[in-house]
Design a protein around this nucleic acid. Sequence first.
DNA 1: CCCATCGTTCGGCGGTGGCCGAAGTGTGGG
DNA 2: CCCACACTTCGGCCACCGCCGAACGATGGG
Lengths: 240, 240
Amino acid sequence: MTTSLSGARTGAARLAALASLAADETRAGFLLALLDGRAWTAGELARHAGVAASTASEHLGKLVAGGLLAEERQGRHRYVRLADARVAQLVEDLAAQVSPTAAARPRTLREAGAGSAMARGRTCYDHLAGRLGIAVTDALTGLGLLRQDTGFALTDEGVNWFEGVGIPLVRTGQRPLARACLDWTERRPHLAGIAGAALCQHALNANWCTRIGSERAVKVTEKGEQALSQLLGIQADTLR
Amino acid sequence: MTTSLSGARTGAARLAALASLAADETRAGFLLALLDGRAWTAGELARHAGVAASTASEHLGKLVAGGLLAEERQGRHRYVRLADARVAQLVEDLAAQVSPTAAARPRTLREAGAGSAMARGRTCYDHLAGRLGIAVTDALTGLGLLRQDTGFALTDEGVNWFEGVGIPLVRTGQRPLARACLDWTERRPHLAGIAGAALCQHALNANWCTRIGSERAVKVTEKGEQALSQLLGIQADTLR
DNA sequence: CCCATCGTTCGGCGGTGGCCGAAGTGTGGG
DNA sequence: CCCACACTTCGGCCACCGCCGAACGATGGG
């Protein structure tokens, strides 16, 4: 039995129950790891967080019961991922709140390398972030395809641009077409929402960029540099 | 000494520390109460939550230390309010997440009365919400002053409208001019951000609406009905 | 069929944290 | 000057929760 977040309780109790899910360092680590948008196995998360498998199993049970994670059983593996874009946005927002300035500097060379790759480009749930995400967002804004001065929305030219490039924007449910996501290395908004997700998916499908290892970081390919330069006027060296 | 949220700790630890602040039912109640944007005294919050003054004092200490609340001492009173619009948005987002459909139905007549007044119109931190907020947002959208189809942003005509009505939009720091806030009774986005706050302040200053009692609920005055009808074409009976 | 691997359940341990009442501090009013 | 009031600090109590290891169940490969 699980104490649902939306049951017959006061708003304060439900809010506290939701926050409790993220109020544990191990579970918070799970959520941040899952921000890459992919599905992880229980074991991977346990090792990532440095806890016993049994501990991780209990945590995952709570997160799933609370609606933050979706799970998919495949054979003897339990894959989990963030339940939906709404949850991802919430985790993003929480994460952004606790990194007010530049995040803690990396200590070791290895971390510095990984950090710099992450800073260059990465996925943030289902859209592009890091300098790559910023560069794309800025380019769209500079070309009048996206307007950020009075809010955050695509212009009509912007919608046409997506169609022209061959990136379909399928409006699903309540999710906004364009939305700002605050980057926690660059401290600037970048494109999220349906358009951000579609662009990221296209970039990966069309081989504009590829994932580095098993982490969130992505690397822009030569083909990607050409495409971004031609379509958005982004200088290749901006991304290095 | 306080364990800062942005100290030299891992991201997961900082996220967990932030979430811990809202992970207690009493503190969550404080945050929700403070969503009305006003400053409360420690005693008011203690009575509101039904805990001893000493307990409330400790909770307030944590929330202030964690940066979620700002405090102001006046004589023997300790006034607290949400630290800034960023924190307010975070609490809003969390609250919206835990009320997936219509909130629990009111049980008593008194609650039903208060609930319906709240549903008609209320403040959400510094902007208008409830049916009033929705009506204004929809009217702005219908008149082409606000566009929600490709994101959420004022149009140029929208910016001019604010100037014309005599509501100055002063851009401060990073805060967006317009932003969507998801209403948790109507389940629809309404205008927040600088424009939403300016509009709400103007509505209260110009006596378009007044606060009911000491709660978040607001009531549209006759003058307000005329103004909203004339400026935005909102039918008076929409607001009743 | 056996075994390695992945995950779950259970019992027990220890720390954390929320709660209260009582006592203490400071403020303002009579 | 004294008292009422708002808040804070302290000590103690209790519940909850995260952690682990060990045992158990399930899956898939050899």
